Amino acid sequence: MFALTVKNMRRSHHRVPLAIDDVEDAFVLPRPLRRAVRFLVSLGSGRINIPAHTGTVATVMLFAVTGLYGMSVGGHGQVVAEATTSAAGFAIEDVKVSGNDETSEIEILQLLGLDGTTSLVALNADAARQKIANLPWVENVEVRKVYPRTVEVKLKERKAYAIWQHGAELSLIQKDGSVIAPLRDNKFAKLPLFVGRDAEASAASVEEAFAKWPDIHAQVKAFVRVAGRRWDLYLDNGVIVRLPEDNIDGALARLTKLDKDQNLLQRDIAAVDLRLADRTAIELTPDATLRRQAAVDARNKALKKAGQDT
């Protein structure tokens, strides 16, 4: 019996091989789950120590996440974020605006929506740029956030080229004819005046046409567009010069010669018509017409009397 016991004990030290059927029936966990199972086994057996207050911290975090999610769904996330970052030292305290001659800084501040507690972190620079870009004088704008408390706004403004009168309205225009804003004061009174339909679109061509004739250009008070095809010049002394549709350069050359030789533009005339290339028509003022008629009548009378005497 003793020998039998010993024999059985010896056999217990060796692994008993499983049959093929037993191996097929054994359950093996997928690899991703093995680590989790081992952790749970260790946790249950007490081999892993959980720090004190872990449950409290986890509960607080759960409530915080739940609260933030609720505020986000309710549309209050931006308000909370702004209040939090402002309290952390990111409230906007300085706005630096540059490049603005015609654009008011007050307008820019209003569009930024600053109220003294606005957070630099929460400020949407792209949205602010789009709002400022819609101001009349702004050609382009850059809005930058400079941490921790500064906003930089850099403008490039449009350049006024002339004044355009359309009906009873006066507007400032760029050289390409695009309207900038209504004319509100006398600050731009020295700019050239263009009058009539489509005058703004053709304004740029005038500078090139008059480049060789600065003396005439300096006397022009207004450029009036006629039928969308040609210009009438209203000089500062009241004389109207009617230019042709084509060959403006030739017409201005003729006008310059007449003025130099005969001091034409200083005479008592109402208009000079240069529309025909082979002739120049002069229109007298009403007073000049009366004086001329009186002179003609006096001459005719004198000739008649002289004829009778002979």
Rank of each mutant, 00 (worst) to 15 (best):
Phe2Val: 12
Phe2Met: 13
Leu4Ser: 11
Thr5Glu: 10
Met9Lys: 12
Arg11Glu: 13
His14Phe: 13
Val16Leu: 12
Asp25Ala: 06
Asp25Val: 00
Ala26Met: 05
Arg31Ser: 15
Leu33His: 12
Arg34Tyr: 09
Arg34Gln: 14
Ser42Cys: 07
Gly44Thr: 08
Arg47His: 10
Ile48Asn: 09
Ala52Gln: 11
Ala52Lys: 14
His53Asn: 13
His53Cys: 13
Gly55Pro: 15
Val57Asn: 08
Met61Arg: 15
Ala64Lys: 09
Thr66Ala: 15
Leu68Val: 10
Gly70Phe: 12
Gly75Cys: 07
Val80Asn: 03
Ala81Ser: 07
Ala81Asp: 00
Glu82Cys: 07
Glu82His: 03
Thr85Glu: 04
Phe90Met: 12
Glu93Asn: 14
Asp94Pro: 02
Val95Ala: 11
Lys96Gly: 12
Val97Gly: 06
Ser98Glu: 10
Gly99Met: 04
Asp101Tyr: 07
Gln110Pro: 05
Leu112Ser: 12
Gly113Pro: 01
Asp115Gly: 07
Thr117Trp: 05
Thr117Asn: 08
Thr118Asp: 13
Leu120Lys: 12
Leu123Trp: 13
Leu123Glu: 15
Leu123Arg: 12
Asn124Ala: 13
Ala125Asp: 08
Lys131Met: 11
Leu135Ser: 09
Pro136Ala: 15
Trp137Phe: 13
Trp137Ser: 11
Glu142Gly: 06
Val143Leu: 08
Val146Asn: 10
Val151Ala: 07
Glu152Thr: 08
Glu152Lys: 10
Lys156Tyr: 02
Arg158Asn: 10
Ala160Leu: 06
Ile163His: 00
Ser171Asp: 04
Leu172Lys: 02
Ile173Lys: 03
Gln174Phe: 02
Lys175Pro: 00
Asp176Thr: 05
Ser178Phe: 02
Ile180Gln: 04
Ala181Ser: 10
Arg184Trp: 01
Lys187Phe: 02
Phe188Arg: 10
Lys190Ser: 14
Leu191Met: 09
Pro192Glu: 14
Leu193Ser: 07
Gly196Trp: 04
Arg197Val: 06
Ser202Tyr: 11
Ser202Asp: 13
Ile216Gly: 02
Gln219Arg: 05
Lys221Thr: 05
Phe223Ile: 03
Phe223His: 11
Arg230Ile: 01
Asp232Glu: 15
Asp232Gly: 03
Tyr234Ala: 11
Tyr234Phe: 07
Leu235His: 04
Asn237Gln: 00
Asn237Gly: 03
Gly238Ile: 05
Leu243Lys: 02
Asp246Pro: 03
Ile248Cys: 06
Gly250Glu: 15
Ala251Leu: 04
Lys257Cys: 03
Leu258Lys: 01
Lys260His: 11
Lys260Asn: 10
Lys260Tyr: 06
Lys260Ile: 04
Asn263Lys: 01
Leu265Gly: 01
Gln266Phe: 01
Asp268Ile: 01
Asp268Lys: 00
Ile269Val: 01
Ala270Glu: 12
Arg275His: 10
Ala277Arg: 03
Arg279Cys: 02
Thr289Val: 07
Ala294Gln: 02
Val296Gly: 00
Val296Tyr: 09
Arg299Trp: 00
Asn300Val: 08
Asn300Pro: 00
Lys301His: 04
Lys301Gln: 06
Leu303Tyr: 08
